[in-house]
């Protein structure tokens, strides 16, 4: 247990590193291969992707915090179930709050909100970090990983919405006049909207990241 970290100031170098690493070289999606599950189906449009990213960040951070606080009390035999129940409870809260305050988005996300529970990032970070570290460090780690995950989501959604619908956040970016239907030359790329295209985008992101950072390459 690296409890020493907890003795540093609240925004010390170690904590900043915890926040920054998952966004770059320890990105949970492209490097650690976690949490792709519930992620890609919501990336056809930017808005649901951002809401998903925020929800996952919140759940990861809070569940890391709670389980880090409880880490010395959890009975070994039911460890996984306790983790799952706490995560499921937090996700239920997120889902109920979305239904009450962001109804439109909650409809678009539909079952994918529930699937945050089995998002491997959350369970992965609890097991790998929160159970062995102090609450504050765990909380920061949760935020960092949530953001790293959110970043990939937002990048993919940005390109898919722009190329596929010609809009961003629902607002038109590519002028109507350019479209072939209105006498222009431009057509939306329908292929980009298709679900499998999300995978291809992530593949491309991995490619670029590994091209720039040779350490990450696999044999």
């Amino acid at each position: 247990m690296s409890e020493a970290k907890g003795k540093q100031s609240w925004f010390g170098a170690a904590h900043r590193k915890l926040l920054a690493e998952p966004i770059g070289i320890k990105n949970p999606v492209t490097v650690l291969v976690l949490g792709i599950c519930s992620a890609l189906a919501v990336t056809a449009k930017l808005q649901p992707a951002v809401v998903m990213a925020v929800s996952v960040t919140a759940v990861t951070a809070v569940s890391n915090l709670v389980l880090s606080l409880l880490r010395r009390t959890i009975p070994n035999r039911i460890r996984i179930i306790v983790q799952l129940i706490i995560v499921a409870a937090l996700v239920t809260v997120v889902s109920e709050v979305l239904k009450a305050f962001a109804y439109d988005v909650s409809k678009q996300l539909s079952v994918f909100v529930g699937l945050i529970i089995t998002n491997c990032i959350i369970m992965g970070r609890i097991e790998a970090f929160a159970l062995g570290n102090g609450p504050w460090a765990s909380f920061i780690d949760g935020i960092g990983n949530g953001l790293g995950y959110g970043m990939i989501l937002v990048i993919v959604a940005f390109f898919r919405e722009l190329l596929g619908s010609g809009t961003l956040w629902g607002y038109r970016v590519i002028p109507e006049g350019l479209y072939a239907a209105n006498g222009g030359f431009y057509e939306n790329n329908g292929l980009v909207i298709m679900p499998p295209m999300a995978l291809i985008f992530v593949g491309a992101i991995i490619w670029i990241q590994r091209k720039r950072n040779k350490n990450l390459m696999e044999e």
Partner: peptide
């Protein structure tokens, strides 16, 4: 291509 090996190509 080297950077694409493993994970990248699996996604594609």
């Amino acid at each position: 291509p080297k950077p694409l090996r493993g994970l990248g190509i699996a996604f594609l």
